[in-house]
Amino acid sequence: MASLEDILVKKHLKRTKARIMILKVLEKSLPLTAGEVYELVRGKDTRLSLSTVYRNCEALAEKGLLYRSTTMSDGLTRYEYAHDTPVYYAICLSCHRIFPVDVDLEKGYRQHMDEEYGFEVAEPKVEIYGYCRECRASGKAEEHKGKMELL
């Protein structure tokens, strides 16, 4: 497996300390906002600013090293490391917890999407929204559903 420095060079990006720290954080985490990434890396380099982290996340996403997603209803962009195999997520509508799930898309889904809808799949992303075990057990899920019915 290539080092993060080698991956940056291959993508024609400078090997900066900020980019390497961002990739290291996201390589082993769930999708995070630029602010969350900033909180995790600023302890290692107090000279980094939130805008530097955001710009670097965007540059890494443009080169395909990170994926951007706007999961959840908060509309915030989250970044995740572009692993070789897609990672799918379940997202709790009550507590907003995100966790990876092991689900498979049906075989031939790419061809089906193209034939049925004229849609060429570039990046499969699955996000399943619902309520986690803890929120259901504590009653928070029902409380959240009640609030949503009022809207």
Rank of each mutant, 00 (worst) to 15 (best):
Y67T: 07
Q111P: 00
L105I: 14
E115M: 13
E120C: 02
E39Q: 10
Y81A: 14
I128W: 03
L48V: 15
G75M: 10
E80H: 09
E142C: 09
V87F: 07
S3A: 10
H144G: 04
V9F: 03
R78A: 12
K28V: 08
E62H: 06
L150H: 05
P100K: 08
L4F: 07
L50F: 14
K24P: 00
G43F: 11
V9N: 01
T71E: 07
Y81D: 13
H112V: 15
S49A: 10
Y89C: 06
E120D: 06
T46S: 13
M113D: 02
G146W: 11
T70D: 03
E127K: 09
R78E: 04
E106D: 10
E149D: 08
T16S: 13
L40D: 04
V101I: 14
K14Q: 15
I20P: 01
R78Y: 03
A141P: 12
R15V: 15
Y89A: 13
A34E: 01
Y89G: 08
E143C: 10
R42F: 01
L66H: 04
K24G: 00
C135S: 07
Y131W: 07
D74C: 12
H12I: 06
K17I: 09
V101S: 03
Y79R: 13
E115G: 01
P100T: 05
D104Q: 11
R19Y: 03
D104C: 08
G35Y: 02
C132M: 06
R42Q: 06
V103F: 00
L13T: 05
G139M: 14
G118E: 06
K17T: 04
T52I: 14
Y129K: 14
D84N: 14
